[in-house]
């Protein structure tokens, strides 16, 4: 059986997050009329980190930051054995006419993002939505959805599993590619 391998180590991980933040600053500058929204639950770890890093780079930055749960918008409800437990949505602003940066960790089939966009529409009509992902598994898409900002692009077969590990939770920031899904 093929072994797992690290595809982004600790240092590369740090550089990648910094690069993504600089790309956002380049595009949005002072973040006027811009908000950042992380998708629960794993996208929020990334969005928390991005928000923290953005403010470290430019302490004057201020923007609304929300966390959105997409459980009730999933298209696989009733196609699974049991419904999934929802996480909290923390959105104390609406997105009417705002520029939105939607953040999730791994872009795979695109269905999470589709659900995220529907959920987002319930908070108003955004002027523009851009997508930021740490990992883009570009050959596994089910829907025509592409990221605007990508940490790393991976060409992996469907059976492979990408795990993003976080220092706060797993002890180390890194991304690991497994040949099959881990239980």
């Amino acid at each position: 059986m093929a072994k797992s391998r690290i595809i982004l180590d600790n240092l590369q991980f740090k550089l990648t997050i910094e690069r993504l933040c600089h790309q956002l600053i380049e595009e949005y500058q002072d973040f006027e009329d811009t908000c950042i929204i992380g998708i629960q639950e794993r996208g929020v770890q990334l969005s928390d980190r991005i928000v923290k890093q953005l403010v470290e780079i430019n302490p004057k930055l201020s923007f609304p930051y929300g966390k959105i749960d997409i459980t009730f918008y999933r298209d696989d409800y009733r196609r699974r054995e049991s419904p999934l437990m929802a996480s909290n949505t923390e959105m104390d602003f609406n997105v009417e006419d705002k520029e939105v940066v939607l953040i999730d960790d791994v872009l795979y089939s695109g269905r999470t993002i589709q659900a995220g966009l529907i959920a987002l529409g319930h908070y108003g009509r955004p002027k523009r939505v851009e997508l930021l992902n740490l990992v883009d598994r570009r050959f596994n898409r089910h829907l025509p959805i592409q990221p605007n900002y990508t940490g790393i692009t991976i060409d992996a077969i469907d059976e492979a599993y990408v795990k993003v590990e976080w220092e706060e939770q797993d002890g180390k920031d890194q991304i690991i590619l497994f040949p099959t899904k881990q239980s």
Binding site: Y73, N88, T89
Partner: peptide, 27 residues
Amino acid sequence: ETIFQTANNFKEVLNRPVKKVPSLRDV
């Protein structure tokens, strides 16, 4: 307890500008 926890999430939905989710659209 599961019902209460799920109800907390729906209570948040009911306080949104659009108070509707598509979960049961084919039921």
